[in-house]
Every structure is written in structure tokens, then in C-alpha cells.
Amino acid sequence: MKFSIRHLAVLSLSSLLIAAGCGNNNASNNTGSSANASATATAEAPTAPASHKLNIKVSFYPMYEFTKNITGDLADVEALIPPGIEPHDWEPTAQDMAQITKADVLVYNGAGMENWVDQVLDSASGSKLVAVEASKGLDIMEGAAEEEDEHEHSHEHANKEGEDHHHDHGGLDPHVWLDPALAVKEVRNIEAALAAAAPEHAEAFKANADVYISKLEALDQEFREATKEVKRKDFITQHAAFGYLAKEYGLTQVPIAGLSPEEEPSAAKMAEIVEFAKTHNVKTIFFETLVSSSVADTIAKEIGAKTAVLNPIEGLTEEDRSHNLDYLGIMRQNLEALKIALNE
């Protein structure tokens, strides 16, 4: 029915134009010209070459930050792991898997951070999906050993909370984004992959990446200056996430637990950390956002120290978002917290 009505409308319009042409030839020429130009533009628009706007899925917040700063408005970038969710334990739903398969690009950190990625890539086999491992080519460190106190936990709990988390990372430390110098390399890796996926935007992606990398390099310099002359080089963290940062700036991370933020240390490990803190007169025990601070609180109370946040930036909290904080802002907060602790 719509087809018939449309053609009747066209015939009626043609009749009117012919009638108008008989009455005023000059007007007909002008109107005809405009109408023809408009019709030509409308007909050609759908077939004109259009710039491809990439549909990009990223695993968790740092990958979103890096990717979005490269693409600007030239791509739709969406994080799979919702804000406020601890990414170590996240698993994709069937709906997430479908969204990833439909995407042009998947950006993930790698180095064992996303234990689900192999399953996703297997499911997306044969699709157009381009997978980007941001940490590819970097010198990945072995992670701190995971521990379980078999006297305090059942075998079932140990399997769930200890072994599974250990295998999540494959024994590797994935937290490369917490070293600004390595973050630069991750940005370059992402940029190169996106340029290959959308060559028409390659120059814009590079220009955007250059701007963001200049900010990361400034951050790197701030860390170097602030940690060059400090009273102490060691700091105690609840989660072994800051090994790359410590290595880059000549510091020593002393983790209470291993790579898994929710891992509970053994009684022996707790006693070891307490002894270290007393011997080295440690006055600050660092904990992190998104997980309980109970372990850090216990040790701080035992030695008469205070606690403070050292944020692994695995996801933004409601408070972070309310203060418009991003990777650079949180890293500067981390630097200020470290400066205080290293000079106590």
C-alpha cells in the first residue's frame, strides 16, 4: 500500500511541475534545477563513501581510558565490566559474549588479567572481531605467590579462593597499567591496532595518542622526581598490584597478599608482615578501593599505624566519578599518598 501511495504522490507532483512550467518557464527552470540537485544529493548520499566508526568493547577501566583518549569521538567505546565491580572475578554473560562478537574491536590488558578472554575469542572465531592485547610485547613479571592457610580454610574454600585466583593470572602480574612508562606502551599498542582496523582514522588516532602520551610522560616525570630522594624505599600494600610501579621508580613493594585482591593471607604471612612493619618502623599500611580493608586495618591496629588508599585503578568508584577523577587524577592521588608514606 505504501508503494502505491508513494507513486501516486510522485505522479501528482510531476503534474503540478508540468502545469507550473507551462505558466512560467523561467520559474520552472529555477525550480527544476533545485529539485534535480536535491534529488541527486538524496540519491547519492547512501552510496557515498562514509567514514567507519568503530564499535569497540574494552575489558575494564584503564583499557577504556586509554582507548577513549585515542579514539575521541571517532569510535563508540564501551567497558564490559561495570563501574565499581572488581574485575578479577568478573565473568562475561551470554549477552556480553554476543555484544563482543558483534563488535569491531576488543581491547583487553592481557598478561592473565582477563581469565575469560580465551573463551570469548574462541566464541568469536570467524567473526570480524579484532582482539587487541594491550600488554603484548611488554616484559611481564612473575606475580607474588598466592597463599592459603590450610588450618584456617577448608579445602573447598582453598580451591575456590586460592587456586582459582592463582590460575586466573597464570602466575603472572598483569598490573602494567600502574606504571606510567608502561602505560605509554599500552597506549601505542592500542593505537596501532585501531589504526589497522580503521585506516581512515589512523592520523587522528596517532594525534590523539600523542597528546595523551605527553600527559602520561609528564606523570612519569612527576613520579621520578617525587621518589628520587625519600626517607624509605619500601611500602606495604594489601594487594600485590604495584610491582611494576615499584620497579620503575626504585621502590620495594611489600604485599600482604598476592595478586588476588580478595585473597586472605595466612596467619604466618600476617605475622611476617607485622614483624617487618615493626622492624622498619612502617607507619602506613595501604589498602585499596573495591575490596574490604579488613586485613590492612588488622595489621595497622597491631602496630599502631594508619591506613591509606593506594588505588590499583581496576575500576572507578561512585566517589571517583562524582569527583570527575580519571586515570591521571587517581595516579596523582597515589603519588601523593606514596610521598607521605615514604617520607614518614
Score class of each variant (00 low, 15 high):
residue 256 I to N: 07
residue 259 L to P: 04
residue 259 L to H: 05
residue 259 L to V: 09
residue 260 S to C: 08
residue 261 P to W: 09
residue 261 P to A: 11
residue 261 P to I: 12
residue 262 E to T: 15
residue 262 E to R: 11
residue 263 E to C: 06
residue 263 E to D: 10
residue 264 E to M: 10
residue 264 E to D: 10
residue 265 P to V: 03
residue 267 A to M: 13
residue 267 A to S: 14
residue 267 A to I: 09
residue 268 A to H: 07
residue 268 A to V: 11
residue 269 K to G: 05
residue 269 K to F: 00
residue 269 K to D: 06
residue 269 K to Y: 04
residue 270 M to P: 00
residue 270 M to W: 01
residue 270 M to E: 06
residue 270 M to A: 08
residue 271 A to K: 15
residue 274 V to F: 04
residue 274 V to H: 03
residue 275 E to K: 15
residue 275 E to Y: 05
residue 275 E to G: 06
residue 276 F to H: 14
residue 276 F to I: 10
residue 277 A to D: 04
residue 277 A to I: 07
residue 278 K to C: 09
residue 278 K to A: 12
residue 278 K to W: 04
residue 279 T to Y: 03
residue 279 T to F: 03
residue 279 T to A: 14
residue 280 H to Q: 12
residue 280 H to C: 05
residue 280 H to T: 07
residue 280 H to M: 06
residue 280 H to L: 08
residue 281 N to V: 09
residue 281 N to A: 15
residue 281 N to E: 15
residue 282 V to R: 09
residue 282 V to Y: 01
residue 283 K to I: 08
residue 284 T to R: 12
residue 285 I to L: 13
residue 287 F to S: 10
residue 288 E to I: 05
residue 288 E to N: 02
residue 288 E to A: 02
residue 289 T to N: 14
residue 290 L to W: 02
residue 290 L to N: 04
residue 290 L to Y: 07
residue 290 L to P: 05
residue 291 V to N: 00
residue 292 S to G: 01
residue 292 S to F: 00
residue 292 S to Y: 04
residue 292 S to R: 02
residue 293 S to V: 09
residue 294 S to A: 13
residue 295 V to W: 07
residue 295 V to C: 01
residue 296 A to M: 06
residue 296 A to I: 07
residue 296 A to Q: 03
residue 297 D to F: 03
